[in-house]
Amino acid sequence: MVKAKKNNVVTKMTWTKRLPELQFLILCTVCCYAFLELFITPSQLSGFSGLSGVDLILLSFLLSVLVAIISVIAGVGGGVIFTPLMLAFTSIDTLIIRSTGLVVAMFSGLVATGPFMRKGLADIKLVFLGSLPILTGGFAGSVGAIYMAQSMGDTGDSLVRLLLGLLLMAIATVFVLGGASTEYPEHNDPSKLGRVLKLRHMYWEDSLQKPVKYKAHNIKTAIGLLFVVGFTGGFFGLGGGWAVVPVLNLVMSVPLKVSAATSGVLLAMGNSAAIWPYINVGALIGVIAAPWMLGQIIGGIMGAHILASIKAAFVRKVLIVMLFATSAKLTARGIEGLFGISVPLI
């Protein structure tokens, strides 16, 4: 899986070199933050000794770049790292964190959509097949999250932390056991629905220097699973990169490279509906979300470059440890909030 991911991102690396508009965007972002840091002197934030608003924005941007790099290398969406960490270790309102989490989960996928489609790596038919369950699931999830926050208040927040802690533990466990992904899955049972929908495609595999054909299978199961992934992503603000790739690759027997590219495109579309309920209740605060959005775009590109020269397996292990630690903290905070029991965890 790691090898395939590496191939995928090396492909991304080559397209970044040919895109002056992205280089221009990176330059503008760096100049913007340098300008703010050098020429603006806003008041210091209360509770943060010596830290100003500009410092915090710059810090968020740098953290977002780091999160994007780790998520690209580890092959997960940025939301899986951002949302749990913020929910576990800060006291920022959960709706603000979850809306920003959706921005984090969405924008690296949005900017990658063009190159993936140009290369023929993302399958447009699979994108639209998954679009309805992901869109409706994501939207239902975000509406549910807001309803819960409005009706349950602090209890709802604690419940969200506890549930996310448990979900994160499950995700980390899947990563530990997740050696089952196959680069070119084979499936002997032809799918009737897949045949009717003509869900067969071909893409050019650079590493083999030949086209690879595939057919999608288990369509109904995959649609059900994608709805669940969409709901979870919208409810927790996680996105769903951790789950869509396995659904496409293991359930539908789509090659890993196509699964990874299609997953990014699909989630960008799905989260585009899920974000609106948050925006319309004022939960998306621009000044907080902006550096995270820009960091995802730039960090995603940097991650692609770095991947070629480091051991991705090591980063994946670090991510697994981080997911387990964050899930323990989230579960502890959830239990504290719900039952008033003090759990001695950092």
């Binding site: 209360s46 920022i92 926050a149």
Partner: peptide, 13 residues
């Protein structure tokens, strides 16, 4: 500065 202060203080939306 108000938005950042208020958000970091844990105030709800």
């Amino acid at each position: 500065s108000y938005l950042l202060d208020a958000a970091l203080a844990g105030k709800n939306v």
